[in-house]
Amino acid sequence: MRRSLAILTLAGGLAAGPALADDDCLVPMADWQPREAVAQLAAEQGWTVRRIKIDDGCYEIKGSDAAGRQIEVTVHPATLEVIEIDYEDGRGAPRGTGALRNDD
C-alpha cells in the first residue's frame, strides 16, 4: 500500500511539474485576436515586421524595433500582452512584465 501511494505521488508530481514550467500560451483558438491585430500592435510600437508566426501557442513577431535592432517578440494571443522581447544581442525584457525595454 505504501509503495503504491509513493508511486502515485511521484507520478502525479512528475505530471504536474512540466505543466507549471510550461511557456506555452494555452488559449482556445476561438479566443485569439486576429493576426491583423498583432500587426497593428507592432505598428503602434514602431516595429518593422518581417514575420508573424505561432510558436508554442503564442504569437511571435520577428522584425526590428524603431532603433533598427533585430527583435523577437512573444505576444499572448488573446490579450495581445507582450510576454517577452528578445533582442538579437541577447538582451530582453523579463517574461510576464509586458515591459518594453530600452537598453540604450
Rank of each mutant, 00 (worst) to 15 (best):
M1S: 13
R2E: 07
R2L: 07
S4W: 07
A6T: 09
L10F: 09
A16M: 11
G17D: 06
A19D: 11
L20A: 08
A21Q: 02
D22C: 02
D22E: 01
L26D: 07
V27A: 04
P28W: 06
P28V: 06
D31A: 11
Q33G: 13
R35E: 14
E36S: 15
V38Y: 12
Q40K: 15
L41G: 14
A42K: 00
A42G: 13
A43I: 08
A43N: 14
E44W: 07
E44H: 14
Q45I: 11
G46S: 14
W47V: 05
V49M: 09
R51F: 09
I52A: 08
K53H: 02
I54N: 09
I54R: 14
D55H: 08
D55A: 06
D55S: 08
D56A: 10
G57N: 06
G57T: 04
I61A: 01
I61H: 01
K62C: 00
G63Y: 02
G63Q: 01
S64E: 10
S64T: 05
D65P: 02
A66E: 02
G68L: 04
Q70S: 13
E72P: 05
V75Y: 00
V75C: 06
V75I: 04
H76P: 00
P77E: 01
P77G: 03
A78C: 08
T79D: 05
T79W: 05
L80T: 06
V82F: 07
I85V: 15
D86T: 07
Y87N: 02
E88Y: 12
D89L: 09
A93P: 06
P94L: 05
G96Q: 03
T97C: 04
G98L: 10
A99S: 14
L100A: 03
R101Y: 14
N102F: 09
D103W: 13
D103G: 11
